[in-house]
Design a protein around this nucleic acid. Sequence first.
DNA 1: CCCAAGTCCTGGTTGC
DNA 2: TGCAACCAGGACTTGG
Length: 274
Amino acid sequence: MPELPEVETVRRQLEAVLPGWTLTGVAAVEPSMLRGVLPRDIKKHLCGRTLGHPRRKGKFLLLPLSGGVWLTLHLGMTGRLLVPSGRRPRDAHDRFVFALAREGQKAWFVFRDARKFGRVELSEGGPASRVSTLGPDGWMGEWGADYLAGRFKGRRAAVKALLLDQRILAGVGNIYADEALFEAGILPSRPAGSLNHAELERLAAAVRSTLDRGVRALGCSVSDFLHVDGGRGSMQEGLRAYRRQGLACTRCGATMERTIIAGRGTGYCPCCQR
DNA sequence: CCCAAGTCCTGGTTGC
DNA sequence: TGCAACCAGGACTTGG
């Protein structure tokens, strides 16, 4: 699943290859994944525009184009971006294929996504409006225990459910939520408002360090995630909670358990998470 | 058949 | 009692 560290990894790879290329055509469009413009109009909005430097907020990739137009991309569960040069590679799951040109050279910008949970939104004057509803970026943003205290105050929902709420923190998904709660020693099912200040401090530090570990590992390729060049991250080798039910806790040796929170599978240690 | 899980939507509940 | 905020669960999607 592309969460913040996976999207940041992709952003850095796109940063190295995309700026300066001009869009010259759109060879494929998946209508159900497109927002902000009608499928038949996408070509005229994009063609002739030059790509700038990719940005990111939470799990959203923000691609500025010349003329104040933006492409806002979300990779969903299984989304992948490729920038092949030469002949266009074809796959049944290619949802968007953009043709690129630069100094007489040609290349492609491909959004491949088996499950169609990904989104591509076209907007003018800034990134798609949904990006403005996001909370601070979990990795880059200015936030801490006091911020969490304010957002969690009076909330009875499970702390994991609020970690997954992109309006509170942008970028945390199911894997990094489980890992951060494990590192903080907090039960995922705890009502968010019941956490004391020391626990909030531990949680804030754990979210940051877990996301940072993910970025340094170039993401987590536990299932589908692949880099722009097809490479894999290594975070999956360091997971201590996510999908570890039935295995021994790396901290105390107890058997890890699984439950469902916010509709998501949740791995935790019943012994050292409280 | 069930499971995986991003975001969005809906309908019911809670509390001021 | 009214109303907004909150909360849980379903829809969507397809490969394993």
